[in-house]
Design a protein around this nucleic acid. Sequence first.
DNA 1: AACTATTTCAACCGCAGGAAA
DNA 2: GTTTCCTGCGGTTGAAATAGT
Length: 303
Amino acid sequence: MGHRCCSKQKVKRGLWSPEEDEKLIKYMATHVQTSWSSVPKQAGLQRCGKSCRLRWINYLRPDLKRGSFSSQEERTIIDVHRILGNRWSQIAKHLPGRTDNEVKNFWNSCIKKKLVAQGLDPKTHKLIPPSRGPSMPPFLKRFQTPPAPFTLSMNHNTNMEMMNSIPSITSFPPLPPPPVHPTPIEEAMIIPDVLMSFQDQHSHNSMEFTDASSSLDHSTFNQTAFMDDTSMWNKYNNTLELQASQEQVQVQAQPQLTSPIGNKGVSMDNYDPTAFDLQLIDTFLSPCDVFYNGNSMDHLHWG
DNA sequence: AACTATTTCAACCGCAGGAAA
DNA sequence: GTTTCCTGCGGTTGAAATAGT
């Protein structure tokens, strides 16, 4: 039973021989590849195009990094996986020279086991309750807090100029109804320990997203990001559309709108919680841009 | 040394989405 | 608007390698 894409052809399956590799490498080096389906024929291979593509992408490509993963790469995989889940191709983009298949295999064969051994759920990256997992050392128990909202904290030196400098913050529409399932961006935002700084291009004032799990009360996480510290908002920014009746001011932010990268004061009239900018997340999560502010896993031993 | 169990990872499968016909 | 083709993705499989007895 061959592939559907090549059912008419006689195709070889299984492991590639060095001769086949050589043919494909030679072909790829001398031809501008337009369609994978035509590669086998032109390269003289008894394979289907899909198989050629896979072999090239996962094994023969010259820019591939071979060998075992470094601890830095391992951390990056864990970090990005926590936010994106099993989006191996997205994760692999943060690891130059690594393929999605390689990352996936490494995750399944190695990282997953490590997380489980440390009492962490590899899907959620949260501590597994003692009843379901290995007994938890006392020092880890304090990290077993509910998922913290993604908060914007400000100190009392924050001034109006700074507040007004935040692009697009005045254009937030009313909160849309909460979805049944979290959207990817919500998942991305439910990070108790991520520390993100962002700086307005004009004012050079910066705002920090800090870990809310260790401070103040927890806002109810509703749609995307909430900003805590009601008094600050009320006191300093009367241009914000605040829901004064609520005990906690919940300012909804769609990341690409509040990001200084785009710096666009975009209306969210057509807000679609399911559509968000993966690239932006990528930007936030580029290997050197991910910071930790007290993560349970930082207290564990790796290796 | 021989056998078995476990792990690793290359390759396959099926599906989804986009483009072209 | 529908069908077909192609590509890319994530889940899964199974052969090879390795570890354990």
